[in-house]
Every structure is written in structure tokens, then in C-alpha cells.
Nucleic acid binder design. Structure first.
Lengths: 108, 108
DNA sequence: TATATGCGCAACTATCTGGTTTCGCAAATT
DNA sequence: AATTTGCGAAACCAGATAGTTGCGCATATA
């Protein structure tokens, strides 16, 4: 198996998804994050390391505290992967639209 | 750790993502899918089982062959999760827009 | 009927995962 | 200067993951 980190690896864990949502709007310290979960700071620290390796998160030191911040643009990579399926949704939607238009014309 | 299957679990594996893309447009048999990868049919079968458990894939028997089809609507769940971040992107885009408008007015 | 083919399931294995506890370092507080 | 606080890194562990091989069953072909 590959051991390389990618964005999908980052979001597979439910705790990690919750962390991402938590820090989406404001940077937080590991301790502050850990308070939101039933787990230790060290466990959160490990999640943050993985998120950092995926470049989904950056840190800025402030005294002895480290604030972790979401690099939200990185989330767009998932959006880009989804694009291929969105095309299919839209194609089907248009097909349905045509069917409805045809039915409408037949009624005339 | 949870053992429950969710859509994120389905897409974390690169082979599984490739399978999803492969069968997005037309249903395929395990053998046909396996031909596209450097792995055995049994391994593909295991992936298909996981995808089925996630309700991302359905099967239809045709003689001794089983065709696996993507339930593309299920992919929308990822899209829904992404929506919260898309809101942030758009909010920032609008902020930028305002800044540009302000600059424009100052020039007048 | 005998043989081919397509398939899922079970057993086994190496590796990855997410968690814990323990530790040491640096910054803040006393 | 001594203690407390915030943090990451390392060692360890149970469980999950993705792959393999071997098997039995059902359908198609000879």
C-alpha cells in the first residue's frame, strides 16, 4: 500500500473532519481543540501532524502556544475531483429537461 | 475506532477511486475491472464489497456475470459536506469583491 | 455429462492506523 | 531559580486494511 499522504487520507477520519470544521473559521491551539473531543491532546497533535503533512493546515507559533489554521484552498482539491461526477449529474439533469420539453411539445 | 462504513472510507483508497471513475458511465464485471489494474479479481471483489456496503455501488446479475454500477447520487454526500467550505470560499470572494469596489470608488 | 468460466467467501499475512503513556524541551509564571 | 504550562516526539499496542491463495458453487460451453 502507498504510504503517501493525500487529501482523502486527511478527511477519512471523523475526528479529523471535525477538527477541520472546528478551525475553519479561526486558528486554534492543540489544547483548545482537544477540549472539544473525548481524547488526549497528544492524539489531537497526531491528527494535526497528518493534516500538516497533507498541507491542509499551517501553524504559527505565539509564545509557547501554537495556533493551527486551516488552509481552506486545499479543500478545493476534493471539489476538483468531484467535478467529473458533477458533470454526470448535470448531464442527466439536462436529459430530464429534454424529456420534459418533449412531453410538453407532444401535448400541444 | 469505528468500523462503520461511510462514503469517506470508500474514497480513501486510490484503487477504489479509480474503480468509481471507471464504472461511472457504464456498469462492469469484476473481471473487466480487474483488467485495468495490477491486482487480482479477488482484490477487486473486496473493493466492490466495500463500495456496496457504502451504498455507492449496486449489482445486477446477468447469467453468471455480475455487473457493478455506480450509484452516482451517493457522491452528492461528499458534495454536501464540502458545502460548508464552499460558503467560506464564496464569502472571501465577496470580501475581495468589496475591496475592489472600494478601491474603484476611491479613484473616482 | 464433463469441463470452462465467473464469481464470492474464508483463511492468512504484512503493513497501516489511531490511540495511549512517558519523556524532554521551551516559554510563562511564581 | 523553581515550578507550571504547552507542546512534539518516541515507544508501544490493539484493531483495521489491502493484498494473497485456495476453495466451492452456479452458469455456460464442449
Amino acid at each position: 500500500m502507498e504510504t503517501r499522504r493525500d487529501i482523502f487520507q486527511a478527511i477519512v477520519d471523523p475526528t479529523r473532519r471535525a477538527i477541520i470544521t472546528l478551525i475553519a473559521l479561526q486558528a486554534m491551539t492543540p489544547n483548545a481543540i482537544a477540549e472539544h473531543f473525548d481524547t488526549t491532546r497528544q492524539a489531537v497533535s497526531k491528527h494535526l501532524r497528518i493534516l500538516t503533512e497533507c498541507e491542509l493546515v499551517t501553524q504559527k507559533q505565539q509564545g509557547r502556544e501554537i495556533f493551527y489554521q486551516l488552509e481552506i484552498d486545499k479543500m478545493k482539491e476534493i471539489d476538483q475531483w468531484l467535478a467529473q461526477f458533477r458533470e454526470i449529474w448535470e448531464a442527466r439533469f439536462n436529459q430530464l429537461d429534454e424529456v420534459l420539453a418533449t412531453l410538453k411539445n407532444l401535448k400541444k
